[in-house]
């Protein structure tokens, strides 16, 4: 389950940030990925919401510190 989420998430990051060198791991943070700024963050969240057909709460989006937490959020809804 979590593997397939990682695969899909990785592709979304590559598409949105237009960078095929991205390889996400659980402890990847925004600082580790070139171009993952506040605007890109919103774009990523939107693309993720669209792909997984989920909707994140304002409280959840603001508090994310790494990819592992993002995956947990997705898992909680799918």
């Amino acid at each position: 389950m979590s593997d397939s989420i990682y695969a899909a998430l990785n592709q979304i990051f590559r598409d949105v940030l237009d960078n095929d060198e991205i390889n996400l791991s659980p402890d990847t943070t925004a600082a580790d990925v070139r171009g993952w700024d506040s605007l890109a963050h919103i774009n990523l969240i939107l693309a993720i919401e669209q792909h997984f057909k989920v909707r994140f709460a304002t409280t959840e989006i603001g508090g994310l510190s790494n990819v592992d937490e993002l995956v947990s959020l997705i898992q909680a809804q799918v």
């Binding site: 919103i42 939107l46 994140f56 304002t58 989006i61």
Partner: peptide, 15 residues
């Protein structure tokens, strides 16, 4: 879209 407004002052839904 209230969340987008509060998060980033985006005036209408990015959709």
């Amino acid at each position: 879209d209230a969340p987008q407004w509060h998060l980033a002052k985006i005036p209408f839904s990015m959709d």
